[in-house]
Design a protein around this nucleic acid. Structure first.
Lengths: 242, 242
DNA sequence: GAAATAGTGTCTCTGAGACAATATTTC
DNA sequence: GAAATATTGTCTCAGAGACACTATTTC
């Protein structure tokens, strides 16, 4: 079709989750050269066809889902294309193009060891290993930026929580994701905003069971939130920048 | 490097401008199959090397700049990567991947006929020709969405204006881009926001020279705005959604 | 009852929107 | 002065933040 040589086409995935109250990224040790043995984002070539010549990936999002399935062993509840990193310099082997995606999953989903044999780990996004290969560090930085940006006016952090959660838990997740304390004085305001936007719905009669203290009402994401992140009304930010 | 067949890699550009007070997209008639003769976005293959085997595009943004230079004959003051459209189905010839970009230019820049021989035209974004090839219609829709979204809290529309402009002109551009009347009652509020954010700076002593009515103070984008779109403080939207 | 956590009532204050008033130009 | 357009002064009102107060649990 094209008379020109084509760049190699890759998909990398920045998988984010909340672990020990910290926003973390999933990394695995590379199982091949270059940078064999180094911590890196899960990723892989776009498979127009598989090894037997049978059609495989439908589009790049499909590639991302396959990478998550094969290299992490999960199906992520939220997956979004982030940015395409490209150029002659990013990989010593030549001109490449990586359609970077990011995914959000509840912490519990990653508790089990990865399905693959590779060594994997979660790293706090501000304590990454040195010397990440290629532009993986830039990818992570951009993914975190995007998630923080969107979280300040959408229900995106819901994807980091289990199905049932309390409003104090949700408030904490927003604080962790945005890396910004929400002072107790703003609790009322936070609840007002979340409830007014209709991001969540009360689960009638279901309460948390804390070791101590008053139990909290349990909520779930409202039915339309999980399939589609609804932006709040323009003026109503979830958390202000100060 | 990869043992798999690679997808073809393309860059398409959604070039937006204001023409006759309307947000318009630049289209050119295709000069080759498929869809030869149809209106389409300017675009082209990524050139890892040129016809003589010499290195050409450095990265996809470089490809986009080359497309704008070769097919439109301009250097766009604002260029941003939008989204990568991909898959087996979007082009009958096979699995392709188009790293779509969008560009903003002042209307005057496109007044001269394109440098190339191809027939070109500006179409209002809500009056596109039928049967745009591939997913060009989705690309335009997404670009317009992105520009509208960003314009509501950044100085992005400044790139659609000439170097010197008045605040009433700027207000009109915001209204056109957002496709939303800004009532006269909000003029004060609009000026407050634009001025408070520091998006623009007064050009001392320079006034517009209208045929009739009071002349208006001329402004220019503040020095840092043209190289970098600065988002406004989270709570201060330029124009509310109502 | 004390400690711990959840949840509410209500005041203040900022900033967006409304709109009347004023300013500067051409004819 | 009339028409046209630019620019400002200032009121109102909604909503975010502050914070004291109430509620519900374990020990």
């Amino acid at each position: 079709m094209s008379e020109y040589p084509k760049p190699d086409a890759i998909v990398d995935v920045v998988l984010l989750t909340l672990h020990a109250d910290t926003l973390c990224v999933f990394l695995a040790r590379r199982d091949r050269e270059p940078f064999k043995g180094a911590w890196a984002l899960p990723g892989g070539f776009i498979h127009v066809v598989d090894k037997d010549g049978v059609e495989e990936d439908e589009d790049v999002e499909d590639t991302a889902r396959r990478v998550l399935r094969e290299k992490v062993g999960i199906v992520a509840p939220y997956l979004e294309q982030l940015y395409t990193f490209s150029g002659r310099k990013r990989d010593d082997r030549g001109w490449t193009l990586s359609v970077c995606h990011f995914a959000l999953v509840p912490g519990a989903l990653l508790a089990a060891p990865a399905a693959t044999g590779a060594e994997t780990a979660l790293f706090p996004v501000d304590m990454l290993p040195y010397d990440l290969p290629f532009d993986h560090e830039a990818m992570i930085a951009m993914a975190v930026r995007r998630v923080r940006g969107k979280s300040s006016y959408t229900s995106l952090p819901l994807f980091l929580l289990p199905e049932e959660f309390t409003l104090p838990e949700l408030q904490d997740v927003y604080a962790r994701v945005l890396d910004k304390e929400i002072p107790t004085s703003e609790t009322k305001s936070f609840r007002r905003k979340i409830l007014d936007q209709g991001f969540v719905e009360e689960i009638p009669g279901r309460m948390s069971t804390p070791r101590i203290g008053r139990p909290a009402q349990l909520y779930r994401a409202s039915s339309d939130e999980l399939s589609q992140v609804r932006p709040s009304a323009p003026l109503a930010r979830i958390a202000s920048a100060r």
